[in-house]
Design a protein around this nucleic acid. Structure first.
Length: 261
DNA sequence: CGACTCCTGACA
DNA sequence: TGTCAGGAGTCG
């Protein structure tokens, strides 16, 4: 579920629940999580105060007063569930962060692909991240720079976190549909005029006005996307059936007629 | 580049 | 039973 807007909303929830508070315990619950968060890390974070919470791309960073950073990534299905230490732990909780005031923040993830890692002061496990997809500075000139020499399709290129941080499969497809761009078009071959359309479309699909109903925004989940997940259904602009292809191992939904640019 | 991996649930 | 899933790292 998480792309940039969802992760941003989750980081806000986390901030409300945890900022300024002290860690009583961080416990991996699922085996896959234990592998990446050893007991030494758990001992190290206990008693530390959470001094800041930031988002970088789809990563959430918890800055501790020790200089260490807890790095959380939701991958496909992760989400926070805020509760208290008295409650029963959710069936899908893969890790929990318990605070000394009794707050328990559970990382819920049915697939258990999420991760919580500890970066010790001075080290960072974060991969290279491009400009945030939300950044007001996102424009055609910037896209031209980061996409130069990229021969892969524009859609997988936009999903490359080193190109643009935060854009994922859904919003990449939705933005390209809005911009009328063929997702398979080699990234470096897209004209500046089209790149400007893409930048505008990304800004739009990530904006609050376009807020796609889901976990954090109310609304019907039926028909919330223009093309994503709508293979065989009618394109909202022209009525042509929406196509589905696979690019870089991921489904791409698009309209063959509207997206030729 | 594609293929495979990490996991588990939902659904045809 | 098989396929797919809003992510991303690794490997050949």
């Amino acid at each position: 579920m998480p792309e940039l807007p969802e992760v941003a909303a989750a980081a806000l929830e986390l901030t409300k629940a945890a900022l300024g508070k002290t860690i009583a315990a961080v416990r991996p619950v699922h085996f896959a999580m234990k592998k990446k968060f050893p007991p030494a890390d758990a001992r190290r974070v206990k008693g530390r105060r959470i001094e800041g919470i930031e988002r970088q791309g789809k990563h959430q960073l918890l800055r501790l007063d020790s200089g260490d950073t807890l790095v959380v990534h939701f991958r496909m299905n992760g989400d926070w569930e805020i509760g208290t230490t008295g409650e029963e732990i959710d069936r899908f909780a893969r890790g929990v962060i318990e605070l000394t005031d009794g707050t328990r923040i559970s990382l819920i993830d049915s697939r258990a692909l999420s991760s919580i890692l500890l970066d010790r002061e001075g080290s960072s496990s974060l991969p290279k991240l491009g400009m945030d997809a939300n950044d007001p500075g996102l424009n055609a000139a910037h896209l031209k720079n980061v996409l130069a020499r990229k021969k892969i399709g524009i859609k997988p290129a936009l999903m490359d976190q080193a190109v643009l941080a935060g854009l994922g499969n859904i919003y990449a497809a939705e933005a390209l549909w809005r911009a009328g761009i063929d997702p398979t078009r080699p990234a470096s071959s897209v004209s500046p005029a089209k790149l400007a359309k893409i930048a505008d479309s990304i800004r739009y699909v990530l904006s609050p006005e376009a807020a796609i109903p889901g976990r954090y925004t109310d609304g019907d989940t039926e028909g919330r996307f223009a093309v994503y997940g709508r293979e065989g259904e009618k394109c909202r602009k022209c009525g042509t059936k929406v196509s589905r292809i696979v690019q870089a191992g991921r489904s791409t939904y698009f309209c063959k007629k509207c997206q030729r640019g």
